[in-house]
Design a protein around this nucleic acid. Structure first.
Lengths: 185, 185
DNA sequence: CTGGACATGTAAATCGTTACATGATTCA
DNA sequence: TGAATCATGTAACGATTTACATGTCCAG
């Protein structure tokens, strides 16, 4: 397993919250905080088929009026178990993989000014991501005894993302300052 | 091009600094700050073949004594041009893709204590990465007029990585505190 | 003379994206 | 009636990993 089959668990995690069609799953990413984990239909439908054959999900038919309209999947007990196992397994890969690292690493192949340009762009993108996060930052979730409600989960994820983007922006400011000194020398 | 052919540019970037064999390229990642961008032989050799057919690299033979020993590649003028183009192109993807996001996002499916466990592990891994960075943090590079020397590049990358890992650790402390309050309620 | 580092590659499998094909329903 | 949205899927390609196969050179 190259990277631990994350896509599979994204699907299962979503189905654990509520029964959904493949189409629904795709749509759930829009406006979601985990939109960067977006799956394509080319992944979703085969995964659903696969999960069904493993009896990790069950298929029912969504009825609208008297017509069938969509295959709705929901997580079985076995599926819930598998999902929990994954949630409790070791999270791998804490390493960062920003393209800016690579460009900066090879930065001696371009001028200082050009490097500053790249950093400015990196800063700008982080700023945009930060702004996009604002919607998620407000609701801390209920203070419910011993339970993790979904809002609290979302809040914590948003908080981490915000902090990382902020750190990147602050770094960019420092880096530009250092390089401008070099440049002005 | 799904993600802009980064692997190709990693190879070219390395060859721009010095002529190397495929084997050398692989070894260059060990102990390097961009070790997370490690390529497999299954990628390196086909890429090298490909770059040669595009005349972006040239092959010579490394001679050791009087025996040939390894195919050494170096970047052609055309290759340097391509590399520069990439360095000046828009860096895409500033989004973070930590597995912890996903686990936290689905965190309502496990207990608060289990979530705290995951966060603690995330914290620990960031701490390890931080320590591994210490070697790179020292040398700021020469203050050379208008040029980006390799040490400065390395220093800036290390600085960014360090800042991000620090932000993650600080977030983890805050998050654990919040969750412990919930738990103790 | 043997194990480890040097060195080059291929095959298979997995993972993921993009583009395409198809068709039903809904609403203006 | 035509566009948008709902809905399901496949095919082709591209990226990446893992495992395998092969062989040389050098030091102890």
């Amino acid at each position: 397993m190259a990277n631990g089959n994350r896509a599979k668990y994204v699907v299962m995690g979503m189905l654990n919250a509520e029964p959904l069609t493949g189409y629904d799953i795709k749509k759930r990413f829009e406006g979601s905080i985990v939109k960067f984990w977006d799956l394509s239909y080319g992944q979703i439908y085969p995964i659903l088929k696969n999960l069904e054959s493993e009896k990790l999900v069950e298929r029912t038919v969504r009825v609208n009026g008297n017509r069938p309209q969509g295959k709705v999947y929901n997580l079985t007990e076995k599926g819930k178990q598998k999902m929990k196992e994954w949630l409790l397994s070791d999270a791998n890969e804490t390493r960062l993989k920003y393209e800016i690292f690579l460009k900066l690493f090879f930065g001696s192949q371009i001028s200082v000014e050009e490097n500053i340009g790249n950093i400015r762009e990196f800063r700008l993108k982080n700023l945009k991501e930060l702004k996009a996060l604002e919607d998620f930052e407000t609701d801390r979730g209920e203070v419910s005894k011993g339970r993790m409600d979904e809002k609290k989960c979302c809040y914590l994820v948003a908080m981490l993302m915000r902090d990382v983007h902020k750190a990147c922006i602050e770094w960019a400011d420092k880096a530009i300052e250092i390089l401008e000194k070099t440049s002005a020398l």
